[in-house]
């Protein structure tokens, strides 16, 4: 069914496609384009990590070239985590660094002609869920149950839990809004670029490069930063002042 001006203007196509399906314990499971793009991103990251590991094994006292780059990345990520998590940074810099590099490479993989894997809600929602689980594990590990209860009844005194359900809803909204923010930003960039290439046709030859810089590089990097900063802020709020 190809009615509508948009669909007749060319091959405008922003959706995820199923490539082939198989049966998984009676369910119909699809391998989609997201899986393929995710695998390619993983291959890029694995290749980079192996190269970085080999370089650092024969690390020199005075770093040159590639070793400089790897050290720069690790130092920047470490200082970002240390700047916003304080004392508990040592425990989380591995996780935050991994997530940062993964989301960044996923977001800017639109430059390589892939459909960015983060433009699929099935990729960003698990990331939000991991943040949610980390928040609540830390909350129960570092705070007393009495304090958690007082927080959950927060604007009113603890013996009057009228606000408790509302606070539960706002806690549940955290992973949803985190993942939807990342998803919608990357998806909007993908849609814009697809519309430009699809509608303008041959007019869109060289100058969309500037738009790629904005929609893929700038927006992707900002959203990566925001996702990691929000995750760190939530986790360090849950840890509280004891850590």
């Amino acid at each position: 069914m190809a009615n509508g001006v948009l669909l007749s203007a060319g091959n405008i196509d922003v959706m995820v496609h199923g490539l082939f399906k198989y049966s998984f314990f009676g369910h119909e499971v699809w391998i989609t384009t997201t899986h393929v793009c995710l695998l390619l991103v993983m291959l890029i990251l694995i290749g980079f990590s192996v190269a970085a590991g080999q370089t650092m094994k024969q690390g020199k006292e005075i770093p040159g070239g590639f070793q400089n780059l790897v050290e720069l990345i690790v130092e920047k990520l470490d200082s970002m985590v240390a700047g916003s998590m304080g004392k508990s940074a040592a425990k989380y810099r591995n996780y935050i660094g991994t997530v940062f590099i993964f989301i960044l490479v996923s977001n800017i993989s639109g430059l390589l002609g892939l459909r960015p894997p983060t433009a699929d809600y099935g990729v960003t929602f698990p990331l939000g869920l991991i943040t949610f689980v980390l928040i609540h594990i830390n909350q129960f590990r570092y705070q007393k149950p009495k304090d958690i209860w007082r927080d959950m009844c927060s604007p009113l005194p603890p013996w009057l839990p009228i606000w408790f359900p509302i606070n539960i809803i706002s806690e549940l909204a955290v992973p949803v809004s985190l993942s939807l923010r990342l998803f919608a930003n990357v998806l909007s960039g993908t849609i814009m670029m697809t519309l430009i290439y699809g509608i303008l046709g041959w007019i869109a030859t060289v100058w969309p490069a500037a738009l790629h810089v904005y929609f893929d590089l700038f927006s992707g990097a900002i959203q990566t930063y925001v996702f990691c900063m929000l995750t760190m802020t939530f986790i360090s709020n849950a840890i509280g002042e004891e850590a």
Partner: peptide, 27 residues
């Protein structure tokens, strides 16, 4: 700058929900 970007990203969410509704309706 980092505080501003954080605040702007949180403020952006409501607009993105509108965009999401539009995308769902269209596609």
């Amino acid at each position: 700058t980092s505080t501003m970007i954080m605040g702007q990203a949180v403020a952006e969410t409501t607009g993105l929900y509108g965009l999401l509704v539009a995308v769902l309706l269209l596609f």
